[in-house]
Design a protein around this nucleic acid. Structure first.
Lengths: 336, 336
DNA sequence: ATGAAAGCGCTAACAG
DNA sequence: CTGTTAGCGCTTTCAT
């Protein structure tokens, strides 16, 4: 049995003795059709198991009606982003959109590559967590009124739709909680310093310390690349300091895990020897040793809201940019 | 500034005063072109920032040359599959293929929906972790010699390319390790009973107990839906038994996490009160309370091999099906 | 209510 | 070495 090509509009038309336009009309429920014709066509569609070819459809349709959106996330390894992805897919599918996803692993060229790929796939719009202000492509797109909404991170050089979390406040809460536990030497392990979230969380960290009259020690602020390895390494550096910190504030869940790994390797006790509060709560936070105090972000909700906004913008590309800020919440467990 | 449509072949042709075919030739490096013409065309391409439209390309090109593959995984929430995804993407991109991914969350209709979507997107081939033998679509595809390789799970009704792990042996090792630690009442919490991995791991469990003369107690074997919630619930049921197990063998990382959650909620000690070994090792296994003994699967490698096989099959759709079995390894830590 | 035909952007004969 | 043209499968005027 050879690979049978799937039926086309023409096949259906032929079989039901009508023109392709008529078949197209019944598929898309556009225009009136004679009940008898309708029946015949539907029968043929069923008989041939006809499915519209989305590639041809997309080539023909104007932008905004192609029912495809692109989703670009920094790292699918990071569970926060998989929550976002799930939120996006949920709403997109509900509205009849397919989602083309790409994960660029914080690499700029891969991000650019995916951007080109999706544009070249004629998506109706894009949801992106931009890695870098230098990523001019994204800025260019929003300048040109291409439907695009940012998630998790915002653009600084231009206004765009964006949905994110109150990072400064959440970081502030986390760090203040640490000082209330009596800590004075608190370290911050951030992700890539070019990313807005890294900066904002740093800001919250600084404000909390400042409010409580604790001097900022630059030694205690470290940036990496938002991944497991860098969390592991940076935690090691910090712990090796002549005057090591007594508490850690980690910038995302991968970093937290890395830090935890070095802490456990050194057989230090949490929170007696070193306390830790992480950004991003995870399904396994509660099963960690000890259960982790963490900032919980509503990833799924973020994905849904972003999709909602994107669909609005696709309909009306000129509307004023909207900024949505959701709340992140500190969940206190046993690691502090 | 209005959304400028991106340049087409014709635009480039016009600007460089040649025909579209010539431009196409320089893009695809097919056929000879005069050096002078070449220069002009390349200049125009750069000037217009021309990027081929993949949609049009795909519509035109025959199957097997469209440089797009589909990837269908059960649950992107499960880190094992994100490793697989990364493996697939790595090799695919290296070979110039784009990947269209879908996660169907173990729901059959969503799986079918994605399958249709990808076919309708004219992919050159498919990598799938089939959820269900009843999923006739997949069987039909391989019957029709559509390039398709299974990962993680295999089809029983028909031979196909597949790359998976020696589940029976790995489960056997895990359970035998438990009996060597002195356990007699060992429970197995599996995922969806329709999935081949669930069955095979069950098989390994039974063999290990049998070898050591331990009677199989049906009470101690439970199936769920492969997700966090069901692991949590099933562990609870098991622990509520009049004669509860002293050790748990959990079928995937989500189930493990769920089980861990109920164990911790009940303030039981691991491994004193209850031992646990999980299928799938995770980045955070080492940071759990206590560090988890687990079976480690080479997800990334699985993804790479699957892609490799798919590309072969795309070239030669009739070649004999290949079955690759990789090794999973038991990593002994402190939870047993 | 239906059909004929143009065209989305591209590739590959075919002809020169 | 280069141009002309057909056609991938579909939607949408424009006729009728």
């Amino acid at each position: 049995m050879k690979t049978a090509k799937s039926a086309s509009l023409r096949d259906v038309a032929k079989r039901s003795k009508v023109s392709v336009s008529t078949v197209s009309r019944v598929i898309n429920k556009t225009g009136n059709i004679d009940p008898e014709t309708l029946r015949r066509v539907q029968k043929a569609i069923k008989a041939l198991d006809y499915k519209p070819n989305r590639v041809a459809q997309r080539l023909r349709l104007p932008s905004g009606q192609r029912k495809l959106i692109g989703l670009l996330v920094p790292d699918i390894q990071n569970p926060f982003y998989v929550d976002v992805v799930k939120g996006v897919e949920a709403l997109a599918h509900e509205k009849g959109y397919a989602v083309f996803m790409g994960s660029f692993g914080q690499e700029e060229d891969k991000e650019a590559m995916y951007l080109d790929l999706m544009l070249s796939e004629s998506v109706d719009g894009l949801i992106v967590a931009p890695s870098n202000e230098k990523q001019n492509k994204i800025v260019e797109l929003v300048k040109n009124e291409f439907p695009l909404v940012c998630v998790d991170r915002s653009l600084s050089v231009i206004d765009s739709d964006v949905v994110l979390v109150n990072n400064v406040q959440a970081a502030f809460d986390a760090v203040e909680h640490l000082v209330q536990r009596g800590h004075k030497r608190i370290a911050y392990i951030g992700g890539l310093p070019t990313i807005s979230t890294t900066v904002e969380r740093n800001e919250g960290y600084v404000r909390a310390l400042t409010k409580h009259g604790i001097e900022i020690d630059k030694e205690l602020i470290r940036f990496g690349d938002s991944k497991h390895e860098s969390g592991k390494m940076l935690a090691g550096e910090l712990l090796d300091l002549p005057k090591p910190p007594t508490a850690l504030f980690t910038g995302n869940s991968l970093i937290t895990l890395g830090a935890l790994e070095t802490i456990h390797t050194r057989r230090m006790r949490i929170p007696e020897d070193i306390a830790i509060v992480g950004f991003d709560d995870m399904p396994w936070s509660i099963s960690l040793n000890p259960p982790l105090t963490a900032v919980s972000q509503p990833g799924y909700e973020i994905g849904k809201r972003a999709t909602e906004m994107l669909l609005h913008r696709i309909v009306d590309p000129q509307r004023k940019p909207v900024r949505v800020s959701l709340n992140a919440e500190l969940i206190i467990r046993k690691s502090t």
